[in-house]
Simulated scan of single mutants.
Amino acid sequence: MSDTGVRTELLADKDAVELAETRSRRKFSWARLGYGAVGVLVFLAIWDIAAIIKNDPAILPTVPATARTFWHYLFTDYPAVNGQTLLGHALTSTRRIVSGWAIGVVIGIVLGGAMASIRVVRFMIDPIIEFLRPLPPLAFLPLLIVWLGINDTPKITLIAIGVVPILTIATVTALDAVPDELVQASRSLGASPFYALATVRLRAAFPTIITGMRLAMGGAWTSIVAAELIASTSGLGYLINQAGQNLQMSLLVSGIVAIGIIGIVFDSLLRLLHRRTDPTSR
């Protein structure tokens, strides 16, 4: 057989292997989806049985009652909650989350990249990050309210404060794990230190950085809901607080469900981005 024929056969075998791997991943994804659906159904069944046994909607509403309330107030104003719909409050919280999270991600990646590349910067910033990391972001809320008021600015700032340490540490850890051979190869081809950082190190470290983004997104929801419970006139945290004061347990649980749904959507998008940047991920 000629060399051309051998190469063609090898390429065909490689394509077949990649196709088999792709099909395997799809089967695994469908299996995970199926098992996840079963888990959700079991959880809903346990919830409904507990609500029926308790038989007190002011403490624990049933699943059908919660679903009806969720659907009704999704597009209908709830007068006791600033005259907004459940969808309106969800969009308000989502806007704050995305703004604060995005700002924190950009700052965290920039700081992490500087710390991983310049030793002096690392020595200067590391104590500050280690000081901020164990502090709950809500500890800064009274200061932010005094300085910035009760509009969206302190809430977005609060989220960014919680995101920055997580993304900084994730970025530094990911960049430190990049093999030196990759950087040396790029430098030998004439790449500057900054170009090597932007196109080689960050590209190789990005899947790990995305994991930090996912962790930061969960913390961001905790911060915004707590902030809206304390100092806000809109958002899902405010909705939950008002519904609890009025003993509207179905609406309260609907607000919690809305947070969970939005959180799953954001996490799924980040998972998809992770798979796009890391072919070995599942």
Rank of each mutant, 00 (worst) to 15 (best):
L87F: 13
V163N: 01
I118F: 15
R95Y: 10
V121Q: 02
L141C: 01
S99H: 11
N151I: 07
I118S: 14
F70E: 03
L141W: 04
L143Q: 08
G100N: 04
I150N: 03
A160C: 11
H89L: 09
V106Y: 02
I107P: 02
P64E: 05
I46D: 12
A80K: 14
V105N: 02
L138T: 07
Y78W: 15
F75P: 02
A102D: 05
V110D: 02
A37H: 08
I159F: 02
V163F: 01
G100A: 09
R68T: 10
D48P: 05
P61S: 08
P137I: 07
A51R: 00
R119W: 10
N151P: 05
M124T: 15
V38H: 09
I150E: 05
I129M: 12
I128M: 14
L41N: 10
L44N: 08
L138E: 09
I159R: 00
A170N: 07
I97V: 15
H89S: 04
G108D: 09
A90D: 01
L111V: 06
L148E: 09
V81I: 13
T62L: 05
I107E: 02
P142E: 11
D126A: 08
V63P: 02
D77E: 15
M115I: 06
F43L: 15
P154A: 07
G100T: 06
I150A: 09
I46M: 13
H89F: 04
T153W: 08
A67D: 06
A80Y: 14
W47L: 04
A67C: 12
H89T: 01
V110E: 03
I145F: 06
A58Y: 11
I52D: 15
I97H: 02
V105Y: 00
P79R: 12
L86A: 05
I156D: 02
S117T: 10
P142H: 11
I125Y: 08
P136W: 14
L41C: 10
M124E: 12
N55E: 13
I169R: 01
L138G: 01
W47M: 08
L86H: 02
L158I: 05
R95K: 12
L91R: 00
L111G: 00
L158M: 09
P142A: 05
